[in-house]
């Protein structure tokens, strides 16, 4: 911007038209490409380059060209003496949590948004403003809140104990079943750490996004279509299944994909609510890069694989959607 001389600046302030004519399209293109290059391509390439770097045992790492980090991802560092699928396991949990939490969020957000679009304009705006406001809550804040809500002394376990549900569970024998599931200690039920808490928090985290993404499609839906279907004798479920859902199929699937990609990288919820045996690749990447081993190359390799996996999932999803689209 410093290259712009004062007269140009002045004219651009006075008239948007003159500015357009001064800013030549090829210059604009060049600036755009420079931005894309520095903000997207360079960091990307750096990560890929680092992923081929060499770990120096006991120190940090150095640039290099080795496939050892990728090999380690699939079979472990001690291969061929011993093989471990530790990192594939982490990758599996990344995808697993992201899919379930995204589906749950869309499943619950869809009916909510549907009923919201049937409300008065004023009520709709109030809800939208409220939901937009909740987006300002960071992941850390949300996790903290759920952490308290699920805590033994201040949360749900306390409620269950005080209302006598815990005692009832103990009498009926369900308590021992919960202990086997890891959802209770000898004193009370517990929700941390558990898949339940992890998925719950992740769904909660993206829920407002789901509503905001579904809202435009649902609110634009022409009411005369559903009314026509109703007058022709279709029940509410049939209308939902044959009229509403097909017409918002694309936004619905788009939302699902977006939430899925967003959730692949979730870190705080997983570190706090998932037991170490069920943690994700995002946690593993962080531990490699910022943890005491200072193994950025291995972290980068894991990040690249996570990226590729996300891409493959989206691609498979796309194929599935297209095929359905043809048959429908």
């Amino acid at each position: 911007m410093s290259a712009v001389d004062p007269p140009t600046l002045a004219s651009s302030e006075t008239s948007g038209r003159s500015r357009r004519s001064i800013m030549r399209p090829d210059l604009f293109q060049a600036v755009l490409w420079a931005l894309i290059l520095t903000l997207c391509v360079v960091p990307f390439v750096l990560v890929i380059v680092i992923s081929f770097g060499q770990k120096i045992e006991g120190a940090a790492w150095a640039f290099g060209f080795t496939g050892a980090n990728y090999q380690r991802f699939f079979v472990g560092a001690s291969w061929p003496e011993s093989t471990t699928f530790l990192y594939l396991n982490r990758l599996w949990y990344s995808v697993y949590y992201a899919v379930i939490a995204a589906v749950l969020a869309v499943l619950t957000a869809f009916p909510f948004t549907w009923f919201m679009t049937r409300m008065s304009r004023a009520a709709q705006s109030r809800w939208l403003v409220f939901l937009l406001a909740t987006l300002s809550l960071s992941e850390v804040f949300i996790v903290m809140g759920w952490d308290i809500l699920l805590s033994n002394r201040s949360g749900l376990p306390m409620v269950l104990r005080e209302t006598g549900v815990t005692d009832w569970l103990k009498v009926t024998g369900w308590f021992d079943v919960l202990r086997e599931w890891g959802m209770a200690n000898p004193r009370n039920v517990k929700f941390k750490t558990s898949e339940f808490a992890t998925i719950l928090t992740m769904s909660y985290l993206v829920w407002p996004y789901a509503v905001i993404l579904l809202y435009p499609a649902l609110s634009r839906l022409d009411p005369s279509m559903t009314e026509a279907a109703r007058t022709m004798g279709a029940g509410p479920w049939t209308v939902m299944r044959t009229v509403v859902l097909p017409s918002v199929r694309l936004p619905l699937i788009g939302t699902l994909f977006l939430l899925f990609v967003f959730l692949l990288g979730v870190y705080v919820s997983v570190t706090v609510f998932a037991e170490p045996a069920k943690q994700t690749l995002a946690v593993s990447v962080y531990e490699a890069v910022r943890g005491s081993t200072l193994n950025a190359p291995f972290g980068a390799a894991q990040a690249v694989i996570l990226l590729i996996t996300g891409g493959i999932c989206l691609w498979l999803g796309q194929i599935l959607v297209n095929r359905k689209g043809v048959t429908a």
């Binding site: 045992e57 006991g58 472990g76 001690s78 045996a277 593993s284 081993t293």
Partner: peptide, 19 residues
């Protein structure tokens, strides 16, 4: 811990992950 850090870290993570 430093001389053998990759081995120790991975053995530890495997234990935690039961993998």
């Amino acid at each position: 811990y430093l001389d053998n850090e990759t081995f120790i870290k991975e053995a530890w993570d495997k234990m935690l992950a039961s993998a």
